[in-house]
């Protein structure tokens, strides 16, 4: 019984961790290249979820899964162009305050459009089944989510390592001025990078909607742990963010078995311990992909 409980919570932790990873990777991309701490990232997750909810009746779950993230990215691109771009080069506090306000606007905006009540998102019936009687807590959908996150993360790493766009983004996190002097439109580079980050938030939104249902406030709950995933993994290191996200997910899952009241607090304790012993985070060093 104990083993099963433990397994249940570790699995749960891994799944939550996978969400943190998707969110935190997007946040990290934007932070590394543009020095913007995007407090509205959770808001974009919500937008992704509600877009999926709205279009599912017309194009089905699979269509929504494919379409909602790029639509969210387009909204993100518009926000970046109009609101965030004028703040580049200023103290990061400006963009932090702007996105902080934006998060509230998105939350109230979704409440205004879709109402304050939670909305269920229908997932295909075969994904809703548990895998087996023993592993009743692992539904097909949970496994599916983890696989989608793994594919998204793998594609992101391939993009950053093997495409010119990815190499330029990584170069830009090290020295944006030199990238510009090599003929690259860094404004465009920042926009594309922002769009990639928001795409990941939109994808988390669709996946989360299928698992947890939709609420205007759901983004806020995932945002703080995602920031902690970045700090634990080490600012500037995307592999660190990946491991940080999974680590805090599992830590919180395991704590839920032995000391349920502390399952949320444990990630903050973990962050404090890591910062005290290794102030740059687990994999923190200059630049990413290190």
């Amino acid at each position: 019984m104990m083993t099963q409980l433990l397994l249940f919570n570790v699995t749960n932790g891994l799944i939550i961790g996978a969400f943190y990873v998707l969110m935190a990777l997007g946040l990290s991309l934007i932070l590394n290249l543009s020095n913007v701490i995007n407090f509205a990232h959770g808001g974009f997750l919500v937008i992704g979820g509600y877009i999926a909810y709205t279009i599912t009746p017309y194009i089905g779950f699979w269509g929504a899964l494919l379409l909602a993230p790029p639509l969210t990215a387009i909204i993100g691109l518009a926000v970046e162009r109009v609101l965030i771009r004028p703040l580049y080069g200023r103290d990061p506090l400006y963009s932090l305050l702007l996105t902080f306000g934006l998060a509230f606007m998105i939350e109230d905006g979704t409440r205004f459009i879709w109402g304050p009540q939670g909305k269920p998102v229908t997932i295909p019936a075969f994904l809703a089944q548990p895998l087996s009687n023993d592993l009743f807590f692992i539904t097909g959908y949970r496994l599916f989510m983890v696989v989608v996150v793994m594919i998204a993360v793998a594609l992101l790493f391939l993009l950053l390592r093997y495409t010119r766009l990815g190499v330029r983004i990584r170069a830009g996190t090290l020295d944006l001025e030199t990238v510009a002097a090599l003929g690259i439109n860094v404004g465009m580079l920042r926009s594309l990078n922002f769009a990639v980050g928001i795409f990941l938030a939109g994808l988390s939104g669709v996946l989360a909607a299928g698992q947890l249902g939709l609420e205007p406030t759901m983004g806020t709950g995932l945002l703080m742990p995602s920031f902690i995933a970045i700090i634990v993994g080490g600012i500037g290191s995307l592999p660190g963010t990946l491991i940080g996200g999974l680590l805090i997910g599992v830590a919180s899952g395991v704590t839920a078995v032995f000391f349920p009241a502390a399952s949320e607090a444990v990630i903050y304790v973990m962050m404090a311990v890591i910062l005290l012993t290794r102030p740059r985070g687990l994999f923190g060093e200059e630049g990413m992909m290190s």
Partner: peptide
């Protein structure tokens, strides 16, 4: 001002073609 964390080959992929 070379990109210290990028490989030589990656450094050469940064400039506009």
């Amino acid at each position: 001002r070379i990109f210290a964390n990028l490989s030589v080959e990656e450094n050469l992929k940064v400039p506009l073609e």
